[in-house]
């Protein structure tokens, strides 16, 4: 029995193929629709603002946020999911990206820092495996906040994601999945916008920011 459990754990711990995205996203969407709820995680940011009293500053936050508790629970569940996956089903803990992508990353850093064996899923000190990632790519440790580079990436990125998601009326889950699944042209336009913004950032701006040494 114990052996079977270990086998199951090892099976799940392998890197998942891309088509499992259809299974995961499909299951999530199916269950939420079954309970008559919309799939959209960035809506939680609006709820949290409203719960903190932002209604005093803008009527955008004056809505019945008490009814949004279910969505906060989805976010909480996603946290647990991340915890269990990373700690008990992490496998080798690596992002299995292509050699072409590794070459691009090494071009950005200007040195051959990354190989197939040290590209951790998250560019930060690996919390489970404990092994190090090259310092250049140690972006998501707390120490990052004391560098200009880290501040721009974490605080700047967060601000743009929060601002953009509400401006566009949804994020990757609300537009790219729910909206397009419901054949909404506005969602398709928003997703094209996501990619235009993403391409501008990735090709033109991000390499410069990553090379900041302070």
């Amino acid at each position: 029995m114990n052996e079977t459990l270990v086998q199951v754990q090892e099976f799940i711990s392998q890197p998942w193929p891309w088509w499992m995205g259809g299974v995961t996203i499909g299951t999530t969407l199916f269950l939420l629709l079954k309970f008559n709820k919309d799939f959209g995680l960035s809506a939680n940011l609006r709820t949290m603002c409203a719960a903190d009293g932002a209604g005093k500053y803008s009527d955008f936050f004056e809505f019945d946020w008490g009814k949004q508790g279910w969505n906060l629970m989805v976010a909480l569940g996603a946290m647990f999911g991340g915890y269990i996956a990373a700690n008990y089903f992490g496998g080798d803990g690596l992002a299995h990206i292509s050699q072409a992508a590794i070459n691009t990353l090494n071009d950005i850093s200007g040195e051959q820092l990354l190989t197939q064996d040290n590209v951790h899923i998250v560019p930060g000190k690996d919390l489970v495996l404990g092994s190090g990632i090259p310092e250049f790519w140690d972006l998501y440790s707390w120490g990052s906040l004391f560098s200009v580079r880290g501040l721009i990436i974490i605080v700047g990125g967060g601000f743009l994601v929060g601002f953009g998601a509400r401006y566009a009326g949804g994020c990757t889950s609300g537009h790219a999945i729910s909206g397009i699944a419901n054949m909404q042209l506005p969602s398709l336009v928003a997703v094209v916008g996501f990619f235009v913004g993403g391409l501008i950032m990735t090709w033109l701006i991000l390499p410069c920011i990553l090379r900041i040494t302070i």
Binding site: V161, G193, F194, G198, I200
Partner: peptide
């Protein structure tokens, strides 16, 4: 959708994280 989408996309690519993944 156009402007908000571009701003969101820039944030998504800057950190490499979107509003669902931040919780995970």
């Amino acid at each position: 959708y156009i402007l908000g989408g571009i701003i969101f996309g820039m944030g998504w690519a800057l950190t490499g994280v979107c509003s669902g993944m931040m919780f995970v």
